[in-house]
């Protein structure tokens, strides 16, 4: 019989704890994910897609790291295949929460530890850990609990 997983509030997150974007948090909190995603578009696509990007059309995206095929909306697709590859996608002026979000977004939401996120964002792993492990959930960034 599989062992029940530990409630996450009993586990103190560490620098080796994986975090991801919890999209269910966005739907539960009734926040506009598309609006937020649009903020991460590059200037070219912001102009092309406008303020109301098409979130209905699904596009096949192949994760270059794993070869896995996922259906994403058009907005996510351009973020993954173009905007996230631009130099201005992650700069010193990008806020810490946005930087972590963008790093996860660019990796197809593959769960990452604060150490890995620090490498991709240029921020301190400790600061990332403190920010993500507080009581408040920012932009749906939460501890990743693998399926059992």
């Amino acid at each position: 019989m599989p062992r029940p997983s530990v409630p996450s509030n009993l586990v103190r997150p560490t620098l080796d704890t994986q975090f991801h974007i919890d999209y269910t948090w966005w739907s539960r909190s009734k926040r506009d994910l598309d609006l937020y995603l649009a903020q991460h578009l590059c200037a070219q696509h912001r102009e092309e897609l406008g303020e109301n990007p098409d979130s209905q059309t699904r596009v096949e995206w192949i994760d270059p790291a794993t070869g896995q095929v996922q259906d994403v909306d058009q907005l996510q697709y351009v973020l993954l295949t173009h905007c996230s590859l631009q130099a201005e996608y992650m700069t010193e002026r990008t806020s810490l929460v946005d930087a972590v979000f963008r790093a996860l977004l660019a990796a197809g939401n593959r769960p990452m530890t604060p150490r890995e996120l620090a490498e991709r964002t240029g921020r301190s792993a400790d600061t990332i850990l403190r920010t993500l492990s507080g009581d408040e959930v920012y932009r749906g960034l939460r501890i990743y609990v693998p399926e059992t």
């Binding site: 596009v59 096949e60 995206w61 192949i62 794993t66 070869g67 896995q68 095929v69 996922q70 295949t81």
Partner: peptide
Amino acid sequence: AGKNPDYGTYTVLEVQFDKGKVLEFASGI
């Protein structure tokens, strides 16, 4: 057959793992 012309011609595999988990992977890209 793959549906995204950005990747050219490719095939999508439907792969079943233990416990019935099904994921899709690209092939022939």
